[in-house]
Amino acid sequence: MTVRAALRRASAAAILFSALAWAPAADAERGGMTLAMLDRIAPGQWQVRTRETGGFDGRLCLAEGRPLLQLRHPGQSCRQFVVQDEPDAVSVSYTCGPAGSGLTRIRFENEQLLQIEAQGIARGLPFAFNAEARRMGSCSH
């Protein structure tokens, strides 16, 4: 990614995060909204493939869908704000202190196929990607 492209993405992310301040968001940590769509995702081994470079590619063993919200900030304790909570789509903005922040939108195709859009800042650098998540089967332990 060129410096110019990275700056454009960072500017777009800043504008989007500013716009989110005006959106009616609920604090997910306080149980404001349920994100029930993520509970419809079939547990098991999921393959995530991005359409661009610099995203997230890999396999995840998921019991439920919430880890998909923070693919570039895995396992970090972040404060989440629900932007959209509908039967077939969720959008969550999150902040992880100095580790960065992000905005993720997950669209439900079926129990075994999802579309993910994410953007934000990780390790001081902007990121933005579109990905497809597909269930591959049971988790192997």
Rank of each mutant, 00 (worst) to 15 (best):
M1H: 15
T2P: 00
V3P: 00
A5W: 11
L7I: 13
L7D: 11
A12I: 07
I15K: 12
L16S: 14
W22V: 07
A23E: 13
A23N: 10
A23M: 13
P24S: 03
A25N: 09
A25I: 05
E29K: 11
E29M: 08
R30E: 14
G32V: 04
T34I: 04
L35I: 05
L35S: 08
L35K: 02
L35M: 12
D39R: 11
R40M: 12
R40H: 13
P43V: 00
G44L: 11
Q45W: 08
W46S: 07
T50G: 15
T50I: 00
E52H: 11
T53G: 08
T53P: 06
G54Q: 07
G54R: 10
G54S: 06
G54K: 06
G55K: 02
G55M: 00
F56C: 04
G58R: 12
R59T: 11
R59Q: 15
R59I: 04
R59W: 11
L60Y: 12
L60P: 14
L62F: 10
L62K: 07
A63V: 13
H73I: 02
Q76P: 00
C78G: 07
C78K: 01
R79N: 08
R79T: 13
V82K: 03
V83G: 02
V83I: 10
D85W: 12
D85R: 05
E86D: 14
E86V: 02
V90G: 01
V90L: 04
S91Q: 15
V92S: 06
G97R: 13
A99D: 13
G100S: 09
S101W: 12
S101T: 07
G102F: 03
G102H: 01
R105E: 09
I106D: 01
R107Y: 02
E109C: 01
E109L: 09
N110Y: 00
E111F: 02
Q112N: 14
Q112Y: 01
Q112L: 02
L113V: 10
L113E: 14
L114P: 10
L114T: 00
Q115L: 10
A118H: 05
Q119T: 07
Q119D: 14
I121W: 14
R123V: 04
G124L: 02
L125F: 14
A128N: 12
N130W: 01
N130G: 10
A133T: 07
R134T: 14
R135G: 06
M136R: 10
G137H: 08
S140R: 15
